[in-house]
Design a protein around this nucleic acid. Structure first.
Lengths: 107, 107
DNA sequence: CTGCATACTTTCCTGGCAGGCAAGTACATG
DNA sequence: CATGTACTTGCCTGCCAGGAAAGTATGCAG
């Protein structure tokens, strides 16, 4: 599978970047988990998720655990591609800059 | 030299990201060159450069070539560090996502 | 039946920032 | 004196993000 390097404004925005990158690592993630990880209010997260859903980047699953509603989210295939493409675009930028790219950054 | 991974909102914004990454590759760059590369109007670029200068990320040199003024810009050491730190932060995000990082992406 | 809690969603409003246009500045040239 | 170059600054518009608060739907407690 070839990933086309494509800068994605929607994914680039800091909060959505964290949401999407969290999702790449978590399969189905729960609303509260995301909310706490990215540090947004319910309303703000809800809106971002709607935005991502409208772009076709995430799937939102509403299930009931016992009697309580539970919203879970995961990246769609399309979202994964967009993220991969965006990362590739960033890497091209970095590559142009001549900065060395390490496979994994240790702090 | 250890680079601290540090997400930088100022550098992250798309236009400034292109400006800064261009600067990492060019030493002194001229105003018109930057303007054409990033596709901004004079005024918009001027403002971004002022912003970057106020953050201490770039140095602005105003010289005269013959009788005509010429504005050139380059990344300061501080700006280089900030960029490197931001890139490291992005790489950490990508690393968390489990995406493979290629040293250079060919299209 | 009423009230309160859970789990979001939607509406309303504010604030910041980006970019374009147009005018301003400074200097040289015709 | 008018015009051109090379920006800079001011003004204005538009977008979008995020918080607060109200709305929706459902369950449970009393």
């Amino acid at each position: 599978m070839t990933v086309e390097a494509r800068f994605d404004e929607l994914i680039h925005a800091p909060t959505r970047l964290s949401i999407v990158s969290l999702l790449t690592a978590t399969e189905w993630a729960e609303f509260k988990f995301l909310r706490d990880q990215v540090g947004l209010t319910d309303s703000a997260l809800s809106k971002q998720l709607t935005t991502l859903e409208e772009a076709g980047y995430v799937e939102i699953r509403k299930s009931f655990i016992g009697k309580r509603p539970r919203t879970s989210v995961r990246l769609s295939a399309h979202g994964q591609q967009a993220f991969a493409g965006h990362v590739a675009a960033l890497q091209e930028i970095v590559a142009r800059s001549g900065l060395a790219v390490m496979p994994s950054a240790q702090t």
